[in-house]
Design a protein around this nucleic acid. Structure first.
Length: 254
DNA sequence: ATGTCGCCTCATAGGCGA
């Protein structure tokens, strides 16, 4: 069972990249973030053998889940704030596994309303994740967390010091998610190993110099952690022409 | 401050969000 996650920075601009990658890698499930529009090309994916569910809005955000197996949608919005209309959350069941796709708020600039929204969103996520742990539900939460967990998860800490993705508050909240009993799939397999990133800025040839950050994650409940076989970042899509600024991360279960 | 994308519109340039 292979589940991948990819922030595509517009599904319209990246449709050829995504279809080519699906044909090459053939994951069972793909979580997409930053669709950036209300149109979603479900038929294109259906023709490739994937059914899909999408949560979209105009211009911003947007998440979708593609799957070779039937998808049962549990929820399309993160609980805890009825006024929150952002398309950032999709919670489904596939083959008995709870699969949750998130596009966590960026939160820049620090100290703004957007930063407060990010922290509140993480508190709401903590509540949902603690409920799943308590009820022993096998669950994988994947997506763009917009959090750099540790110093080794960025090329140079000093250049991210004033960024919302690197602040003590979101990082403490990310650790709180792990303290509930979840495992950061990639980090658990490559402890203390820096230089592995999932995002590189478009400017200043950041990718060519591997000046990136690790912000796309898979968090696993205990029962799925036992089944963890591999977790890898596929750099190839980021090296292509007109890429997303993120590249896919793939987790594999026994 | 800046770099670069992609989206949108009181649209063909500029603002917003990342």
């Amino acid at each position: 069972m292979e589940i991948a996650s990819w922030n595509v920075n517009s599904i319209r601009a990246r449709l050829d990249h995504v279809t080519a990658w699906l044909k090459a890698r053939n994951p069972d499930v793909l979580l997409l973030q930053e669709l950036k529009g209300t149109e979603f090309p479900a038929q294109v994916f259906k023709d490739l053998g994937y059914e899909s569910v999408a949560v979209t809005q105009k211009a911003y955000n947007g998440v979708a889940i593609l799957s070779r197996y039937p998808i049962e949608t549990m929820s399309t919005a993160l609980a805890g704030d009825e006024a929150d209309s952002h398309a950032r959350y999709l919670d489904v069941t596939i083959l008995g596994i709870r699969v949750v796709n998130i596009y966590l708020p960026n939160g820049n600039p620090v100290g703004s309303d957007k930063f407060a929204y990010k922290l509140a969103w993480m508190d709401r996520l903590n509540k949902a994740m603690s409920d799943w742990i308590r009820n022993k539900i096998p669950v994988v939460i994947g997506g763009d967390f917009n959090v750099i967990p540790e110093d080794i998860d960025c090329h140079k800490p000093s250049s991210w010091m004033r960024d919302a993705l690197f602040q003590p508050e979101p990082r403490a909240r990310y650790r709180a998610l792990l303290n509930l009993g979840y495992t950061d799939a990639f980090r658990s397999l490559y402890p203390h190993e820096g230089g592995h990133f999932t995002f590189w800025d478009y400017f200043r040839q950041a990718f060519e110099h591997n000046r990136g950050i690790r912000i796309d994650h898979f968090l696993l409940s205990p029962r799925l952690t036992e089944r963890l076989e591999s977790c890898e970042i596929d750099m190839h899509p980021r090296a292509q022409a007109k890429p997303s600024d993120h590249t896919p991360i793939i987790v594999k279960f026994r």
